[in-house]
Amino acid sequence: MKVYIQGIGNISIQNTFRQTGFPEPVWYNESYVRCIDPDFTNYISPNEARRMSKVIKRAIASAKTCIAESSVEMPDAVISGTGLGCIEDTEKFLSAMIDNDEKFLQPTFFIQSTHNTISSQIAINLKCNNHNNTFVQGGISFECALFEAFILFADNKIKSALVGGYDEMTPSYFRILNRIGLWKKKFEGSGNLSNSTTPGTFAGEGSVSVMLSSAKNEKTYAAIEAVEILYQPENIVESIETFLSRNSKKTEDIDLVVMGMNGDVKNDAIYKTISADMFGAKAHAWYKNLSGEYFTSTGFGLWFAANCIKHKYVPSYAALNSHNAGKLQNVLLLNHYQNKNFSLILFSAC
């Protein structure tokens, strides 16, 4: 089965919003960074915006942009992934509850704290009564959303789906996650992440909406042929081989392997194993040096892979080796979260 990427809206720490192709990369020396936000008043009226936290404004803006780019007017499904939902409002409610000893709490922050409020506000904004769902599976939340869309396409339940990955990194959550060693102790800049030999990565945030359709049009980026989610696979190399053969592909057919490496030695080791065992002679690229790491950073990975295919090149700053990516006919995107949850996405040029 092929599902076509008809539009992408991407708000990130790069200048990706409403850009055609790859923008000039922005490199960061500071370890805590926020998205390069557009002017939201172009997408959301002041009366709608007044209760929205950053992550929701971004989600609406990226969703609207991706719809405008596609030829779909009303998606048959709105499916979102988010690791932490509107953590900003969750923190506001939580802090007030603790500080005020359960008094004078504001309903707005509670309402906005539910993870599904992002998907639901997209639906309210679009007046879309169709299938609506929210996945919250840590670092593979976006892939879980994509996987459900795929199931609905395979079942002929839908002909289009708006799939998104949305997460924000608040200052306090950045600090909290720092306690458990997610970020680098000594950050040497996002441009130097690939040479890193230490644990921890570079934090990011982002909002990526993708319009998938069973039909392709002249603007289609690429096709997605298969998505797979694996939990604690016993042998990931074998799992990838099975995945490829189930989709009538051999390792030789893959022109580019896009990997969710993030500069954390504990995270990156398995990619090196996969690469050495399976794809030694193939071109490799990554994207988390551009997006930073966050729960739904694979959304950015999808944008990256789709643009490589559409524009027929791999930007040098994202290449992990000097192998030629050939015609960029077949691209495999691999991601994992804490060596437990793995996702495989197979793209092809159309």
Partner: peptide, 25 residues
């Protein structure tokens, strides 16, 4: 996070090859 809550349950049993968490209130 919600996903971690699900994984704690799944890991108690082991053996699951697909684990996912949904949050629609």
């Amino acid at each position: 996070d919600c996903g971690a809550c699900t994984e704690v349950i799944a890991d108690y049993f082991g053996g699951f090859s697909y684990v996912s968490t949904i949050s629609t209130a």
